[in-house]
Design a protein around this nucleic acid. Structure first.
Length: 858
RNA sequence: GCGAGAGUGGCGGAAUUGGUAGACGCGCUGGAUUUAGGAUCCAGUGGGGUAACCUGUAGGGGUUCGAGUCCCCUCUCUCGCACCA
């Protein structure tokens, strides 16, 4: 009988669908386990990035379920609508109308694409019931001051009718419409006060041992807590005071000018009517068009313009000029900085450019620096000079006392500052939960009363021709009456960021039918936190930070009890591939390229860098061909064998046949020996074994140990699979050796073969279940426990000792495992080859590493 | 630019705490088997050298009996940078 995946895969898929699929499983005989997606086997068309995602998540889920542990992996929460809306923006094609049928069709399509979707426990994030509770939580946040509205400056592309992130602006133009200059638009947006929880989230970073270190480091840097002071600079000719944040209050005596961010609200006010006004306004407009990271780059010229106004340095009482500068960011600190050109490189460059005065206030211990001869700022530690009462102190030691001094004189206060900004959740999109707010001319901002929730998306709308949100053009949606005064009012037409949905879906999954509030605290308390969360490394900051924030908000509202949503975290790398671009037709799919030329126009294709697969770059691979040829199991084992999951992978089909060959090898191992194997019971360690059998038995248990550790500790399926391959090779070697162990021999072989099937079952579920049933078992593998190894089976008789002379390997010897340190050393020095290298030299030292190695130093 | 990560044969990758570099697989070479094709099996495979041996983990320096692994510098690539989600 041949291994034919096309026959066995549908059979087992049907079986699982009937027995297990899409059911959360609770089994009192096991600790607790919970699988959001039981077997999302790759079938149908799948975007390549998701094969890896789903394969890994599914494999971990299967493994953990055999060990009795809970696991959750995200089920493509961003898949329910956003891709379609993005496609609409990019191509103006799909879909034409936002209708319920369309949305339903899209979901069906997604299911066909391999996004397993739990229809019985309807919980797509676009469902009205989900919106109801999300909107309720939002309103509660509004009530508590955790949600607020603020005016902001954003990059706006007319053609997309959408806001662009900084990185989406290329040379001042939109990334989708490279000919369209991006404009700066002022708009009102809703924000969530993630900063209120920044301290707690930061502190808990050190209490998450199950998270990858690099993710936590990135989050810590993102939050960016720093200690410093806010200093008040009175504005000359006014009662206004300018507040400045600094971490370097020790340099205050050297502050010789002050810079504002172009966005700072005080600037326009300050220059009104002055001769400088026109110049300042032009500079602001110009600067805002530059991408933020170019603005703050070390290589960008520091540009600025004098405002015509002065303020007073509170400690020196000098009047110092005020500038607007391109390198000052509105979002950080107070949006204004005190400039100390002698001790900050950016300030130094700026001062040189505009001829501003310098004053040294920190001097290095070993030399003198003078303003006239300085070529760069002095940013190291030193002794304070020109600093009034603080002269002679070490600058770092004086930080605290200067802050206290300022506080006592009313010139400022100590403070901590965070780099992280509040979370802007307003989106000018159709897809997303509407923000439940009504604007009334008389009453102002009025929240939608709880009993009127949910505010749902209207259906049967035409797509806007340019892709923007249709909601501001839909009177049936925005026309409403004020809940307070009853007069005509207008609904907020922005929707919420879909990161809102992804921030708590895992909580709602535990009680999707609950209708008395967002969450059934008993159920959430039983399941949460998630034992194992799996997601791409691209979510290391935003999604994972927002989830941690949202969980705390829900906790403080009494909806759940945990602070941290995910105990263990696996961030998988991305599947990458080089991009191909036609000068005429833009990015091309791989099948649109033939021999380096565009199939549409024949133009030579430009091969770009290897970047993560994405639909917008079209560097995606359709695994369907491979699945058709080799079956889903082969594609699964191949993907997992290619590299460890946290690493990025450059996609290549090369070697997929090797994986198919291996599965055939395992298949034949069972099929060719099925009678002998099923004729005997599994060896359980009762009888003494001959040498070759003992060695095979040992290998079996070594493999179980290794595979278990590789999966359990670090999800390194590639090494786990290679260990199983080694065991398979060893079984073949034993069978081919002609050693006739009789019944007992077959019993040991059966133990090895059954271990192979069990160890592979998370990776290749279809073929494993088929082989398992061939071996005479009734139970499906998902119900069988993970194998365990026995310590006594691992014992060895001999150990291999490597002998080095001066750190170079010169010989290897095999000694009994019972040998002591001294025995090993004596044996090593007596070795003939070692003798040769030692001859005529004096032995200085001999290092013996137990069970491993001897190094002779001569 | 800032933050994070990575760099090992022709290729994907392996190498607990510093202790045999290249496990496992692909590819390649030779052989066996087969009417042929496919499949399967056996042997070899970092580079140099007949060999002893030398050399080798992006490049340069350091610590150590011993460095792919630890420290410093340089280069290259990837991810994130807040409205792609």
């Amino acid at each position: 009988m041949k291994y034919d995946p096309q026959k066995i895969e549908p059979k087992w898929q049907a079986h699982w669908e009937k027995e297990f699929l899409f059911k959360a499983v609770e089994d009192p005989s096991r600790e607790k386990y919970y699988l959001m997606e039981m077997f999302p086997y790759p079938s149908g068309k799948i975007h390549m990035g998701h094969v890896r995602n789903y394969t890994i998540g599914d494999v971990v889920a299967r493994y953990k379920s055999m060990c009795g542990k809970s696991v959750l992996h995200p089920m493509g929460w961003d898949a329910f609508g956003m891709p379609a809306e993005n496609a609409a923006i990019e191509n103006n094609t799909h879909p034409e109308k936002w209708t319920y049928d369309n949305i339903k069709a899209m979901k069906t399509q997604l299911k066909r694409m391999g996004f397993s979707y739990d229809w019985d426990r309807e919980l797509a994030t676009c469902e009205p019931e989900y919106y109801r509770w999300e909107q309720l939580v939002f309103l509660k946040m509004y009530e508590k001051g955790l949600a607020y509205k603020k005016r902001t400056h954003v990059n706006w592309c007319e053609k997309c009718q959408s806001v662009l992130a900084n990185e989406q602006v290329e040379n001042g133009c939109c990334w989708r419409h490279t000919d369209n200059e991006v404009s700066i638009k002022e708009m009102d947006s809703w924000f969530l006060k993630i900063t209120a929880y920044a301290d707690e989230i930061l502190e808990y970073c050190d209490k998450l041992p199950g998270w990858p270190e690099r993710v936590l480091t990135m989050q810590k840097n993102w939050i960016g807590k720093s200690h410093g002071a806010v200093i008040r600079f009175p504005l000359v000719g006014s009662t206004d005071v300018i507040e400045v944040f600094t971490t370097r209050q020790d340099t205050l005596f050297g502050a010789t000018f002050l810079c504002f961010a172009p966005e700072h609200p005080m600037v326009k006010e300050m220059v009104k009517g002055l001769p400088e006004e026109g110049k300042v306004l032009r500079f602001i407009e110009h600067t805002l068009k530059t991408e933020t990271y170019l603005r703050t780059s070390d290589f960008t010229a520091k540009e600025g313009v004098f405002t015509g106004r002065y303020c007073v340095n509170p400690v020196t009482e000098e009047e110092i000029p005020i500038y607007v500068a391109n390198f000052v960011l509105a979002e950080y600190g107070t949006g204004a900085i005190m400039a100390v050109p002698t001790h900050d490189q950016r300030d130094f460059e700026f001062a040189k450019e505009y001829g501003l005065p310098l004053r040294v206030v920190i001097t290095p211990p070993d030399r003198l620096i003078r303003e006239e001869t300085m070529e760069e700022a002095y940013t190291d530690e030193g002794i304070l000079v020109n600093s009034g009462p603080f002269n002679g102190q070490e600058n770092l030691m004086a930080l605290e006392s200067i802050a206290e001094y300022l506080e006592s004189k009313g010139m400022g206060r100590k403070t901590t500052n965070f780099r992280i900004r509040d979370w802007g959740i307003s989106r000018q999109r159709y897809w997303g939960a509407p923000i439940p707010i009504i604007y009334c001319d008389g009453c102002g901002v009025v929240p939608v009363p709880a009993e009127d929730l949910p505010v749902v998306l209207p259906l049967d709308l035409d797509m806007r021709p340019n892709g923007g949100s249709p909601l501001p053009f839909e009177p049936s949606f925005y026309d409403t009456t004020c809940p307070q005064c009853g007069k005509k009012a207008r609904r907020e037409t922005d929707t919420m960021d879909t990161f809102m949905e992804s921030s708590w879906y895992f909580d709602r999954y535990t009680c999707p039918d609950y209708d008395k509030g967002p969450l059934d605290i008993e159920k959430v308390d039983y399941w949460m936190p998630v034992d194992q969360y799996i997601g791409g490394i691209e979510h290391a900051i935003l999604h994972l930070l927002y989830s941690r924030f949202y969980t705390r908000v829900l906790r403080d509202f009494g909806y759940l009890k945990v602070s941290e949503p995910f105990t263990n975290m696996l961030t998988q790398g991305m599947v990458c591939k080089e991009t191909e671009e036609c000068p005429e037709h833009g990015y091309l799919y791989p099948y649109e390229v033939l021999e380096g030329r565009c199939v549409k126009c024949g133009a030579e294709v430009i091969t770009g860098n290897t970047v993560k697969m994405s639909k917008s770059k079209r560097n995606v691979v359709d695994p369907q061909d491979l699945i058709d040829r080799f079956g889903a199991d082969t594609v699964r084992i191949f993907c997992l064998f290619a590299s460890p999951p946290e690493k990025d992978l450059e996609w290549s089909d090369q070697g997929v046949e090797g994986s198919f060959r291996f599965l055939n090898r395992v298949w034949r191992l069972v099929v060719d020996n099925v009678e002998e194997l099923t004729g005997v019971p599994v060896y359980k360690g009762e009888e003494a074994l001959t040498r070759p059998l003992k060695s095979l038995h040992r290998k079996t248990h070594q493999t179980i140990k290794k595979v278990t550790r590789d999966i359990e500790d670090r999800f390194h399926f590639n090494t786990a699979i290679s260990a199983v391959m080694e065991l398979v090779n060893e079984v073949y070697q034993y069978l081919g050796s002609g050693d006739n162990g009789g019944d007992i021999g077959w019993r040991v072989v059966r133990e090895a073969v059954e271990s192979v099937v069990l160890l592979l079952s998370p990776v290749v579920p279809h073929v494993a279940d088929e082989l398992w049933s061939m071996l005479g078992h009734r139970q499906c593998l998902i119900q069988v426990s993970w194998p365990s190894y026995r310590e006594d089976a691992l014992e060895i008789e001999n150990m291999l000792i490597v002998i080095q002379v001066n750190g170079k390997v010169r010989s290897k010897i095999l000694v009994p495992a019972s040998y002591s340190r001294e025995d090993i050393q004596a044996e090593a020095l007596a070795d003939e080859r070692v003798q040769r290298f030692v001859e005529g030299k004096t032995i200085k030292k001999v290092i013996v590493v137990p069970n491993k190695l001897v190094n002779v130093v001569v």
